[in-house]
Design a protein around this nucleic acid. Structure first.
Length: 463
RNA sequence: UCCUCGAUAGCUCAACGGUAGAGCAACCGGCUGUUAACCGGUAGGCUGUAGGUUCGAAUCCUACUCGAGGAGCCA
């Protein structure tokens, strides 16, 4: 017999009802009586379980009744309508074959566990309801991102994970090396001789694919990256990880307005796609993880995002009458408390803040005509804060070089990045979206460690 | 990295200076439609680690380790 997935049973019930079927899966719980019992089975194809009813006529009745959570079984029998209220149908077992026993010390219980404990069981937590929901949504959201960009004619670019430049400026980097750390080669002055290293120079894991994406943007007009990113920052917060995934679209012949339109359309598409394709998961999360989740997401889809400038944001904060821990003043970067006030209290929906002072933004952002702000945009969303950071890029070689000089960047390291401006450089813009932060927004999960399969954070690379 | 809080049975927690407990899980038994199944029983602990105060420490003090929240850095 061919195995039917539990998802097929739920989506095509009429086809399988009163038919003999075979299913595989893992036991979530067994409720046994003297002469009959119930097994809840989940095969991972669907969020919901299948209830298998068995009785003492089965030769291995005793063994089945003793099955612990986590065990794997194959059940064959008739799919019938269930008299119970909690499931539409159930499997009347003609046979239950034990495929893999779970030892009695199986670390997951039927009872609710804390997310902190489940992090210590990262290899087993995908078998729980919450993580089953989160990681299916992660998969569906990944697909939605590709679908959104591919349908719009964007080219997916795989930018390098190992980079030869340590000067991208987006944070501390992890070194990549094959040198023997206990016997480092040194030059005459006693410094490490990286010409003896694998690549003949210092190399690191990427902190952003943006600069490389810009090069491909000048060939394909519309590109995006979607890949792993690494930051060696000692950040201990629920929103930071050392290894995470980032989406970085880049569009040519376009400025900040088109960039924001793209970001808004993308976010709305992904939210809509996930709501439509994972209703059981979303409903579970809304019930047990964040009771305002669905309301917030539907609100995001159905309202236009707010657009204000940094200068306007500062004015709003100053007039708010709120007591902030940090003083608000033009020229100072907005603090988390300021961002949260604007997106959660003042507007209560996603907000783009644009045109920040040049001093607090990256070197590649395009100088505005006022000579003191740059064409940057941050998208703030309720519950998360900064979800997207982007800008129109400085395409004018003289402006770009002047800015690099001011910041003391070594232009030789960026020779190819400057080349892009010399050879048919045009107006272009792009943004970076932290995929895990998007998932936190989509699922209501409060900690980034709970939307990454095996999270890497300072002092933690277990698994 | 800074600030705050926490660490007691496999899990979730109680005991707050005087013999360390409960629920769930495990194990044994009962139960003819269960749904976090239910009912009865058994076993389970050098109270995160190392010092200190005290007649006596899970409880008070110090350091460290790990975890959580806030801040910074950012996505």
């Amino acid at each position: 017999m061919i195995a039917i997935t539990i998802k097929e049973l739920y989506t095509d019930t009429e086809k399988y009802l009163n038919q003999n079927i075979l299913i595989n899966g893992w036991v979530r719980t067994v409720r046994a009586s003297k002469s009959f019992g119930f097994i809840e089975v989940n095969d991972g194809s669907y969020f919901l379980n299948l209830q298998v009813v068995y009785n003492e006529k089965l030769a291995n009745f005793q063994a089945i009744s003793r099955l612990g959570a986590g065990s794997a079984i194959t059940a064959v029998g008739l799919l019938v309508e269930s008299p119970g209220a909690k499931q539409p149908f159930e499997l009347k077992a003609a046979s239950v074959e034990i495929q893999g026993l779970a030892a009695p010390d199986y670390p997951l219980q039927k009872k609710r566990h804390t997310f902190e404990y489940l992090r210590t069981q990262a290899h087993l937590r995908p078998r729980t309801n919450a993580f089953s929901a989160v990681f299916r949504i992660r998969s569906v959201a990944s697909f939605a991102i590709h679908k959104f960009f591919q349908d719009k004619g964007f080219v997916y670019v795989h930018t390098p994970i190992i980079t030869g430049s340590d000067a991208e400026g987006a944070g501390d980097m992890f070194r990549v090396s094959t040198l023997d750390f206990s016997r480092l080669p040194r030059d005459g002055k006693g410094t490490v001789d990286f010409t003896r290293d694998f690549f003949g120079k210092e190399t690191n894991l990427t902190v952003s694919g943006q600069l490389e994406a810009e090069a491909y943007c000048m060939a394909f007009s519309k590109v995006y990256t979607f890949g792993p990113t690494f930051r060696a920052e000692n950040s201990n917060t629920p929103r930071h990880a050392a290894e995470f995934w980032m989406i970085e679209p880049e569009i040519a012949f376009a400025g900040l307005t088109e960039n924001m339109d793209l970001a808004e359309a993308m976010l709305k598409f992904i939210v809509g796609y996930v709501l439509e394709n994972t209703p059981e998961e979303m409903s579970f999360l809304n019930k047990f993880v964040d009771k305002s989740l669905l309301k917030r997401l539907e609100n995001a889809i159905n309202t236009d995002f707010v657009h204000i400038t940094y200068t306007e944001a500062v004015e709003i904060l100053k007039k708010s009458g709120q007591q902030f821990e940090y003083q608000v003043d033009w020229g100072i970067d907005l603090q988390t408390e300021h961002e949260r006030y604007i997106t959660e209290k003042h507007f209560a929906r996603p907000v783009f803040i644009t045109d920040y002072p040049q001093e607090i933004k990256a070197f590649y952002m395009r100088m505005n005509d006022d000579g003191r702000t740059v064409a940057a945009m941050d998208l703030l969303v309720p519950g998360i804060g900064e979800l997207i950071g982007g800008s129109q890029r400085e395409e004018r070689p003289d402006y770009l070089q002047k800015r690099m000089d001011e910041l003391g960047l070594n232009k030789e390291d960026y020779w190819w990045y400057l080349d892009i401006r010399r050879y048919g450089g045009v107006k272009h813009a792009g943004f970076g979206l932290g995929f895990e932060r998007l998932l936190m927004y989509l699922t209501g999960m409060a900690n980034i460690r709970d939307v990454i399969s095996f999270p890497r954070t300072p002092k933690n690379a277990e698994f």
